[in-house]
Amino acid sequence: MSEPVLPLAGASFDGLVEVREIGPQGMITLRGDLALPQVIAGVTDLTGLEMPDVRAANTAGDTGLLWMSPDELLVLVPYRQALAAVDRLNAALSGLHVLVVNVSDMRALFQLRGTQLRDVLAKLAPVDFAPEALPVGELRRTRFAQVAAGVWLLDDTSARVFCFRSVAGYMFNLLSTVSDPDSNVGFHVT
Rank of each mutant, 00 (worst) to 15 (best):
K123N: 03
V151K: 00
A85N: 08
V100L: 08
L139F: 15
D53I: 06
V161L: 09
N102Q: 12
A145N: 11
A108V: 11
L154I: 06
Q81M: 15
L134T: 07
L93D: 02
V101E: 15
G150H: 05
G61N: 02
L65D: 10
M68Y: 02
V161Q: 00
G95N: 10
G114H: 01
A56H: 09
A60M: 07
S94F: 10
V54N: 06
R160K: 04
A60N: 12
L139E: 09
P135C: 09
R140D: 09
P135Q: 08
A60P: 06
N90H: 13
P131A: 14
C163W: 00
A82G: 03
E132Y: 11
S69D: 13
L96M: 15
E72F: 12
G150D: 08
D71H: 15
R165F: 00
L124G: 14
L49W: 00
A125G: 04
G137H: 11
L89S: 03
R113N: 05
D45M: 10
V103S: 14
L83A: 14
A57E: 12
D156C: 01
V147K: 04
D119W: 00
R160T: 03
L112M: 13
L66T: 08
L89R: 05
W67E: 02
A57H: 06
P52I: 03
A145T: 10
T115D: 08
A145Q: 10
V161T: 09
G61C: 03
Q81G: 13
K123H: 11
L99F: 15
A108Q: 09
T157Y: 05
T63F: 00
H97W: 02
F164D: 14
L73S: 07
T59N: 06
V86F: 00
A149R: 07
A92C: 10
S166P: 04
Q111N: 12
V127N: 02
V77K: 04
L109G: 00
H97I: 15
A108D: 04
V120E: 00
D128L: 02
L74W: 04
A56W: 06
Q146C: 02
L134M: 12
L74G: 11
T47H: 01
T59P: 04
R141H: 07
E72N: 07
E50H: 08
E50Y: 12
